[in-house]
Amino acid sequence: MIAAGAGHPRSQRSKEIRRHALIYLGLAPFLVLAVFPVFWMAITAIKQDSDLYLVGAAPFWFRLPPTWKNFDFLFNNTFYKDWIINTMAISFWVSAITILTSVPAGYALARLRLPFAENLGIGIFMTYLVPAIILFIPLARVVSTLDLQDSWWSLVVVYPTFTIPFCTWLLMGFFKTVPFEIEEAAMVDGCGQLGALCRVVLPVSGPGIITAIIFSFTLSMQDFLYSLAFVSISDQKPVPLGVATELIRGDIYFWGSLMAGALLVGVPVAIVYNLFLDKFISGITGAAIK
């Protein structure tokens, strides 16, 4: 196609411009669909309350001056600070449990030529697909047996049920890409199997481990059902649950603060997830993304 226009640089250029225009035209509705809700949430978060309920003039921009009042309300009149701390603490402990269990498991499945390794790996990964909606009722019993109901610690116990399967699978793929020779060399040098793992393999596994931590965090943030079912005390909630349940009083929605609280945590999570999305997709499909 390009070769045909090679003799006429100008027509080739206008062809390129036309091609771009068509692609952008095709993408425009998708972009509006994807981005507008976020824009709408963001502008709602910094609008004055009375601006939200003005009828008539176009609502897409400020009709009254923007305000930080909604954020003030969030930090001074709600448990938002506690929710952020809870979310961070949950993520920390979930990541710790996930790394401590899925790094050794992923390594063993990928490298030690164990009998049934393939089936065990698939079996662990399949548990990622047993959805919360089937498990939340029996897990409610587990949580109350452990005396953790209404505490964010219940979520620390429960979230690894989906982060361990996913991260084990992810790390299994990662460890397969680390060359075998470095381990063999270490063992020739007199390290045992454990020594080779700790001193040679783990130091080059940083990227895989960081990816697993990121997913422990972002997958925990996607949960709603477990926190809804297990935590009902205001100051114990993680951010998504707190925002969705505590900023609504009866029929009154604090839209400005709702959007502020949702985006303040949602946007950073979306950005981090965005950067690691290809790893997520190739993790579950096994396809490399170009």
Binding site: L27, F30, L31, A34, V35, P37, V38, W40, M41, T44, T218, M221, Q222, F224, P240, L241, V243, A244, Y253, W255, L258, M259, A262, L263, V265, G266, V267, V269, A270, I271, Y273, N274, L277
Partner: peptide
């Protein structure tokens, strides 16, 4: 384009509610 998928679901549903 991938924003809808990466935003935590409870967060974006609140936006749609509004």
């Amino acid at each position: 384009l991938v924003i809808p998928f990466t935003l935590p679901i409870a967060v974006s549903v609140l936006g749609w509610k509004w």
